[in-house]
Each structure stands twice: as structure tokens, then as C-alpha cells.
Design a protein around this nucleic acid. Structure first.
Ligand SMILES: [Zn+2]
Ligand SMILES: [Zn+2]
Ligand SMILES: [Zn+2]
Ligand SMILES: [Zn+2]
Lengths: 192, 192
DNA sequence: GAAGTAATGTAATATTATTACATATCATTG
DNA sequence: CAATGATATGTAATAATATTACATTACTTC
């Protein structure tokens, strides 16, 4: 294989996707997290996560397929879906149900030591909350999720419903896009 | 057209689906609601809503297609999706994103005069909250939704995010199914 | 009843996701 | 190291969900 890139050194090879240093860093971090949970961050999975981290909006499975195709291998749907499943199970990405698309878990980007609110509380409670902008397509993972979860937990308790996972998705218009629309036009709504 | 049914009298013909009196009642009610909003509750839409009301769990678009086929007409996907869009727009049904399936709005079943929490608050805020049981497949629309919505609204305000619609979906195990699993076995988990 | 609007029919196609089975890669351990 | 078993990936086919574009029909209004 001829891969002569001039990227700065990283723990893992670069695969030719030209991931930024910051993303390489996050990928390395993600790899360590998986290892801690007995998971194997393979090259394939790493590539997929890298592509999701690089995007400025949720990415669909077939988008990822296309992007992976451009670089040597030509994976088929099961490949991508298996990688996505792995990343979901390890809390590295989230699926936005309303978009059938995927975003990185914000905690990866903020480089915590893995004390994120989801995947915690009880055996294993996967849960996340998002703001989805209809104008720019940007998605923001809500930080003060605990309050939302608490309310939900209370409701479930009252109904004797065992909560295993929860998704909260709010659609609307983000601050930037709202400003760009009302105030001065031509103010380029940047994704998030 | 020859339609000789011997069903008990109702505001509208029965189409041969054998909808119960209770459901016919709800359909009539829904029809009045639409009319009030300047919408036309056609036979097709009425049938689709009736089928959704009759089901004990969320129904997929293609399930509906199958069921409609059995009764004279043979609609194609666009037909069903158009009917579903109409019913969604008029707040008569909800889409469960995690299941790509549809449930009746609980307020239809409880026969309010249309003062339900969603489709209100602001110009038109569609929003709903659900508990989804993984065991029996039953879905419950959460009644005390206001609290959840309030928390979300607060969060959005703080971020200057304009909320247009929101969905909250909790997956887990309902009370009945949990009991059936732990306690006495063979206690037939009834859908919800 | 003619014109305009809303609803439905129809065929083709797009998008998202899974099944089943073959192959390859990695980790152990004897 | 070779044999083994477990994990991961490749591949082909197909399933499930949803939309586009355009023709037709049915209702409404004047
Ligand atoms: Zn997250
Ligand atoms: Zn925006
Ligand atoms: Zn409702
Ligand atoms: Zn149940």
C-alpha cells in the first residue's frame, strides 16, 4: 500500500483521510476508552469515528459508505452498520432518530475522562438530548441533561416503568440562524 | 358502488373494517376537530386513523398498506404517507421515531375537546413524550408532559434556541411485563 | 357547469437497514 | 510455532421505509 502522507506523527496511521491533529487526538482517546471496556478500536472503526468527528453535522450511514469508498477499500452496508453499532455501544457516537444520522458524543470532543452522564446511572442507561437546527442542520448535545433525565426518571418511577434508554430531540432554529434570518442578511449561518 | 354493510348506524359509513362503536365515535370526533381546523377528514384518512386506533401497538406505514389492501382498494405508498402526514399535521396521531411507526394521540382516545398540551404553546408546537415497552411493544403517551416540556423550554431559552417541535422517547420495560418476568411466569404480558 | 383547488392513483425510484454465509484477522495456549 | 477459538470483516442479496413526478379524480365555488 502506498500511503505517503506528510501528517504529523500520531499513535495510529492516518489512512489518508487527513484527519486533523485534534481529531487524531480524540481518536486516540476513544481507543483508550474502548480498550478499558474490553473493546477493540480497529482501523475500520477508527476511520468511521474520524469521519463522524470531522463532519459539522450528522452523517448518514450511506454518506459514510461513500466517504470510505474514496479511500482504497469499498465497504458494503453491513461493514458500516457494524462499525456504527460498535461506536454506539461504547458511547462514542449517538444516533439522531429524526435524521437517521449519527453525531459524535460531545464528551469525546470535550475530552473528559469518561464520566459522561449517559451510559451511567443504573447498569447501563444510554441516553442523550439534542437540539437540531432545521436551518443549518447543526446538532448540539445538551449539556445539562441531568435535569431532563431526572424528570423522566420521576415519571417512569411513578408508572413503574423501567427506563433503559431515552432520547430527547428538539427541532427548531439555532441562535446563529435566527440572527442571520431576522437581522442582517448574508451573515452566513455557520453550522452551529 | 355497491357497499351493503349491516353495521350499526354512525355518522360515516363503516368501510368494512368492523371498527368498534367506540372507535367510530373517536373517528367522528376527529372529523369534527379537523373540520374546525379547515381540514377534510376523507374516507381514506378516516380508514387509516381507524386502523391506527384499533391497533394495540404502533403501526408501520406498510402494515397499514397491507391492511388497506384487504378491503377493496389497493393503495400505494404515497397514499398512506399522505394520509399519515395529514393526521400528523392535525395532531391526531404521533410518529414514534425509534420505531418508524405511528400511534394515535392519546387525547383522541380520552375524548378531550382538543385542549391537549401539544400543538399548543406558541404558534404551533408539536411535541409528545412516550414510554416504549421493549417486551410487549406497547407505547404509552406520557400525560404529565408539561414538566418535561418546561425543562426543555428553559434549556432552549438559555441557548436562544427556538423550539419548534420536540420528541421524547423512553425505551424500557412496562410494569406489566416486569411483573410477568420476575414474579409468576405465564402471566401473559398484555400490550400495555 | 366551468374553473380552480384539494385529494387520490400510479409507476418508478431513493434511502436506510438487515440477513446469511464466507473469509480473514487476532489472541491463546499447548 | 501450529492449532484453536473468538472476533472482525467481506460479499451478495434483499428487506423495510420513504419520496418524486406526473396523471386522474373529486370536491368547491362561482
Ligand atoms: Zn453524548
Ligand atoms: Zn442553525
Ligand atoms: Zn398526543
Ligand atoms: Zn410491556
Amino acid at each position: 500500500m502506498n500511503m505517503q502522507t506528510r501528517t504529523p506523527p500520531s499513535t495510529q496511521p492516518d489512512d489518508g483521510y487527513g484527519f486533523s491533529d485534534r481529531i487524531q487526538h480524540q481518536l486516540d482517546h476513544a481507543g483508550r476508552l474502548c480498550a478499558g471496556q474490553g473493546g477493540r478500536m480497529t482501523q475500520q472503526r477508527r476511520d468511521v469515528l474520524g469521519l463522524i468527528l470531522s463532519a459539522s453535522a450528522p452523517v448518514g450511514a450511506y454518506d459514510l459508505l461513500e466517504q470510505l469508498k474514496t479511500s482504497g477499500r469499498k465497504p458494503a452496508p453491513p461493514t458500516i452498520y457494524r462499525a456504527l453499532d460498535f461506536l454506539l455501544e461504547h458511547g462514542l457516537i449517538h444516533r439522531i432518530e429524526r435524521l437517521s444520522a449519527f453525531v459524535p458524543c460531545t464528551h469525546l470532543q470535550h475530552e473528559h475522562t469518561h464520566d459522561h452522564a449517559h451510559a451511567q446511572t443504573e447498569p447501563c442507561l444510554h441516553s442523550a438530548q439534542f437540539l437540531i437546527c432545521r436551518t443549518c442542520g447543526g446538532v448540539t448535545e445538551i449539556a445539562d441533561a441531568p435535569r431532563v433525565l431526572d424528570v423522566l426518571k420521576t415519571i417512569c418511577d411513578k408508572k413503574n416503568f423501567t427506563m433503559q434508554s431515552a432520547s430527547v430531540e428538539v427541532e427548531g432554529v439555532c441562535e446563529d440562524c435566527a440572527q442571520a434570518a431576522t437581522g442582517q442578511k448574508g451573515h452566513a449561518p455557520t453550522p452551529n
